[in-house]
Simulated scan of single mutants.
Amino acid sequence: MTPKKILIVDDDQHLLIGLTARLKHHGYSVVTSMDAVSAIAVAKRSAPDLIILDLGLPAGDGYLVLERLKELPDLAMIPVIVLSARDPVPNKQRSMEAGAVAFFQKPPENHALMAAIHHALGETTALSAFLTT
């Protein structure tokens, strides 16, 4: 089976490296972008199954990326998880209204982030499938 592909859009090189390693360890394929403009181009080219998006980006912010994604039919249905250092009080609601499926403040708690990724991708573990039957 082909691994699910996740696009990480963040200008923090250390976060990209750490999150990429974590996701690859969990069996995902990872592509990255470090600014708002290239994020759309990388999403078009790589057709990710999920996008993890920072709000504070060079060349436009994450809200611009969310807006552009929703305007493009081939990208509009890709789930987006926002991962940001910005104040969560106004930004979580705004992110969700813009189409994000989850919001995490940096640094994210590993288990919660992975659970959100699994949920956004429609993945279930044997244990969760057992518990819901």
Rank of each mutant, 00 (worst) to 15 (best):
V31W: 04
A43K: 00
M77I: 02
E71L: 13
A59H: 14
H26P: 06
H26I: 02
L72S: 13
L66A: 11
D49Y: 01
L50E: 03
M34N: 14
G56Q: 14
M34C: 06
D35W: 01
V30M: 05
I51Y: 05
Y63E: 12
A76F: 03
A43C: 01
V65N: 11
L57D: 10
M34E: 15
S38D: 14
A43V: 00
A76H: 09
L69E: 09
S33T: 01
G60Y: 10
D35T: 02
H26F: 11
V31I: 05
L75H: 08
V65E: 13
D61I: 09
L53E: 05
Y63I: 13
A47N: 05
Y28F: 15
L55M: 10
L57Q: 08
D54K: 10
S29G: 09
A47Q: 15
V42P: 01
L66G: 11
L72E: 14
Y28V: 00
R45N: 12
L69N: 11
L53Q: 07
V37K: 10
A39R: 00
G60T: 05
P48Q: 04
R68W: 06
E67F: 12
V30K: 03
I52K: 00
A41L: 04
L69S: 12
V65G: 10
R45L: 09
H26W: 10
P73S: 08
L75F: 09
S29W: 03
D61Q: 12
P48E: 05
R68H: 12
A76S: 14
D61G: 15
V65Q: 09
I40H: 03
Y63V: 14
L75Q: 08
D49G: 04
L53F: 05
S29T: 08
Y63T: 11
L55V: 06
A36M: 03
I40C: 02
G62F: 14
P73Q: 12
Y28A: 02
L55Q: 11
G27A: 11
E67C: 11
V37L: 07
R45Y: 03
D61T: 13
Y63F: 15
L64Y: 09
G27M: 10
L53T: 03
V31H: 07
I40N: 03
L72Y: 07
V37S: 06
S33E: 03
S29L: 10
K70C: 08
K44A: 07
L57F: 07
L66K: 10
I40V: 15
H26A: 14
Y63H: 14
G27K: 09
A43W: 01
D74I: 08
I40R: 02
M77S: 13
V37G: 02
V37D: 11
V30D: 04
L57C: 09
V65T: 09
V31C: 14
A39M: 02
D35V: 02
D49R: 02
G60D: 12
G56D: 12
V30A: 04
P48W: 04
R68S: 10
I52S: 01
D54H: 11
M77H: 13
I78S: 06
A39K: 01
G27Y: 09
D61C: 12
L72W: 07
V30P: 06
